[in-house]
Every structure is written in C-alpha cells, then in structure tokens.
Amino acid sequence: MNLQHPPPGRYPPRPHPLALLLLFAIAFVLTTMAALATGTPAGTLISNTAQASYSVGASSLSKSSNTSTFAVAELINVNVVSQDGGNVGVVPGTDDQYLTFTVTNTGNGDESFTLSADSAIAGDDFDPTLVGIFADTNGDGQYTPGVDLAVPGGVVDLAADAGVTLFVVNNIPSTLPDGVTPIADGQTGTTSVSITSNTGSGALGTLIPNGGDGGTIDAIIGSSGGLPATTDATYTATSISLDVAKTAVIVDPYGGSTPIPGATVTYSLVVTVSGSGTAVGLTITDPIPANTTYKPGSLTLDGVGLSDGAGNDDGEATGSPVNLITVRLGDMTAGSKTITFAVVID
C-alpha cells in the first residue's frame, strides 16, 4: 500500500521526513503574474523635429526646426509577491520549509536587487530558523534541498520586465522561543523579506543622479513605498495526521473463512485524517496481493461502487491482469473514508 504524493507541479508536497503517515498541506493558489509593460527602456532618446512650409510671394519655402532630444530616465521599481496564497502550514520540528516569492523588475532598466530575510521578528508566536534564500534552479516551482541553489548574497539581476521565483527556506522549531513550550496548532511564525535596489534606495521619487544604465542617465525610485520594501509571509503550525487501517474478511467456497483457493478476500482500507488543516490531493493505491485475482467491479468508496476503468471516476483497477487499485480522495479535512475491494485466492 502506498500513499502517493500529489503530482509534481500541482501542489507543493512537503513530506514530513520522520513519519510516513503524517502529512500536511495547504491550499496553494497559483497567482499568475500579470504581464507587465514597464514602458520605454531607460536611456532611450526621444527626439522631435517640426517642419513648416509657407510662401513668400509666389515662392514656396520650408523650414525645419531644431531637434529637441531627451533621454528617458530610469525607473527603479520592483514587486515582491508571496506566491503562497496564504499562510503556509508546517509541522513543528520540520526542516526546509519554504516560502515562495516572485521578484519582478517593474522598472524600465536593468537592475540589480538585494534580498534579505528576517525570521526573528516580533508579533508572531514562534521564530522560524532561517536557512537562506534559494533560487528555483530546476524551475519546478518547488524547493528541493541540494537541487535549488542558494542565491549568493541575495543578489538578483533582472532586466526590465524580468522576474524570478525565489524560496525563503526556514527550519521550523518544535518549541516557542522559551525553548520549552511546544508549538501548538494555529500558532504562527513570520518571515519578513526585504528588497532594495543596488542602484540606491530611498522614498518614492528619490533621484539617483547618473544612477541609470550606463551611468549617464538619472535613476528615480518608483516603488510606491520607496526602497527598501518589505513583504511578510507566515507559517502556521498544523498537525494533520493520516492513518490507514487495512482489514480483510475471507469467505471460502464452503461457507467458512479459510484462505483456500477459490476463497474471496474483501479488503477494507479505512483512511482517517485527524488534526487541523487539509490533506491535499490524497491518493491511495494498493497492489493486488500475489497469488490472488482481483474480483471485477468490487471497488467501492464509502459504499459506492467505483468502476474498474480509468478516467471516469475517482478510482480504477489497472493492469492486465489487474495488479493495482487506485482511489483519489482529493482534499481531506478531519474525517474518514472507507475503500473496499475483493480478490479471489488463486
């Protein structure tokens, strides 16, 4: 029997490293980033020349004006947006729990930004232990330790309009800052992410002479709240546990319960979720035992039959001969569901 994690890319699986049957998950809202048109690139020369035509007597004459020219200044603007769609559920005492952010250069020039993170801020219940800021090196939208690499110095260089996904990774303590009291369900720990431009910082409208691309044009802070700017993201402690109890009832061809060839074994899998939070994208699979044959049409979920075929409902019996049953339970909060299927002993 296997507990399958959701398919990669659909939900961020964050398995508890210690207990197979302990899961947590949190609804993940994929915030699509609006396509931003940040405007005319910094340094672009905007020129204008007017023409006049006129006549003097019978003569037609024309005149061009001088050419007025200015260079577009550089707008320094950046958006840091949490992609977690809400607080991130974590189990106390687990490592490498990550917050997902996108950083987008919404200015009109090439810009270098520095990010920093602070997990020891006031106003929350526990203090996550900051591991670092990591890039989504393999581009899968999920933090994978050892694969997704740390961002040196927190520095990201972004062309105008360009964006990047970053993970702020923390280890979650098992106790409150007093070092004694265990973290309870629903308690929170916040990480504050700060970003500034390496060109300069200051309030909205701050002028950085010759700070623009190439050093010949002025740069202006365009972030509405000025730079550095901070964005918070919060973990919420949760303790969701999943238990699967499997039982078997044998009926032999002679009215008894002896496991002999021809006897029918009906398995029941009782899946119980307890604790707070939601187990997201839960799928139960169970291989057909050796030396038995799946009894066609015997798969049920909470007493309702599921067809053996794939794709038409939440369950199927697959293989030829059938060697695996799969039931997709979807998102489950506290409660239980029962799966049954039957095999005949060969």
């Binding site: 007017a50 006049a52 005149k63 050419t67 007025s68």
Partner: peptide, 10 residues
C-alpha cells in the same frame, strides 16, 4: 526668395 520663417521646437 529669402527664408523669413524661423521655427523652434521645445
């Protein structure tokens, strides 16, 4: 014919 119109742009 001599030019008489001056045109400036700003």
């Amino acid at each position: 014919a001599k030019e008489v119109i001056d045109l400036t742009s700003k």
